[in-house]
Amino acid sequence: MRGLKKKRRIQVIIVAAVALAVSTALIGYAMRDGINFFRSPSQIMAEPPAPTETFRIGGLVEEGSLRRGQGKTIRFNVTDGGAAVPVTYTGVLPDLFAENQGMVGTGRLVEGVFEASEILAKHDESYMPKEVVDALKEQGVYRHTENAANDG
C-alpha cells in the first residue's frame, strides 16, 4: 500500500512537470509574433536583424527625406542622430506625422530598407515614446521642450 501511494505521487509530479513544460512552450509559440523588440537606427546599422524578424524602429523623421511615391507608398529616413535608416510604408500616415517629429514603426528590414507595416506618430505636441527619447538621448540629439510629457 505504501509503495502504491509513493508511485502515484511520483506520477502526479511527473504529469504536472510535463504539463507545465508544454503550457510554457505553447505560450512562447503563441507570443512569437506578438513580441516586437525596439531598435534605434544606430543599433540597426551596427547589428542588422534578419529579414524575417519583425521589430520596432523609432527616431525622428529626417528633414528633407519625406517622399511620396506612386499610390499610397511613402519613403523617408528615420534617424537618431547617429545613423539613418530608409523606411517605406504603404498606407495612410497619421495626421501628426511630419519631418523632424518622433515616430515608431513596426516592420522588417529587407535589403537595408525598413518595410513598415504600421507607423505611429506622436499624439500631441510634447509627447514622444520613451524608447525614442532614450535612443535620442544616447546619441546626444534629444531636444527637451519645456512641457515635455515624457522626458525620461
Rank of each mutant, 00 (worst) to 15 (best):
Q43Y: 05
P86G: 05
G69F: 04
N150Y: 11
I14R: 08
G140S: 01
A148Y: 01
K72Q: 14
S126N: 13
L120E: 11
R67T: 13
V104A: 03
E47I: 10
A148S: 15
K6V: 10
K137C: 04
V15G: 05
M45L: 14
V110F: 07
P129T: 11
N100F: 09
I57W: 00
L120Y: 08
E99P: 02
A30F: 05
Q139S: 09
Q101C: 14
P86F: 03
E47A: 15
Q101W: 05
G152F: 06
V132C: 04
N36K: 15
P86E: 05
A135H: 00
F97W: 02
V12N: 02
G34Q: 10
K130I: 15
F37T: 15
A149M: 10
R75N: 10
D134K: 12
S117G: 14
L109I: 08
V132M: 03
K6F: 02
R68K: 13
A46S: 15
T145Y: 12
G64S: 02
T24W: 12
K72M: 14
E111L: 10
I119C: 03
V78L: 04
L4Q: 00
A19G: 00
T106E: 12
D151E: 11
R67I: 12
E115M: 11
A98Y: 04
G112W: 06
H144A: 14
Y89R: 02
Q70H: 09
P129C: 11
T90D: 08
E131Y: 07
G34P: 03
V104Y: 02
S117Q: 14
M103H: 02
A148H: 08
V133A: 06
R68I: 10
N100A: 13
N100K: 11
R75E: 13
I10A: 11
A148W: 01
V87W: 01
L136N: 00
L66I: 11
T90S: 12
M1S: 05
F114T: 01
D33W: 05
Q43E: 15
F38A: 08
G69N: 05
R9V: 08
S65T: 12
G152D: 13
K5H: 07
G69T: 09
L120Q: 10
D80S: 07
M1Q: 04
R75I: 01
N150V: 12
E125S: 15
A21Q: 04
L66K: 02
T90I: 07
R143T: 06
V85F: 00
M103V: 15
A25F: 08
L120W: 06
D33I: 01
A21D: 03
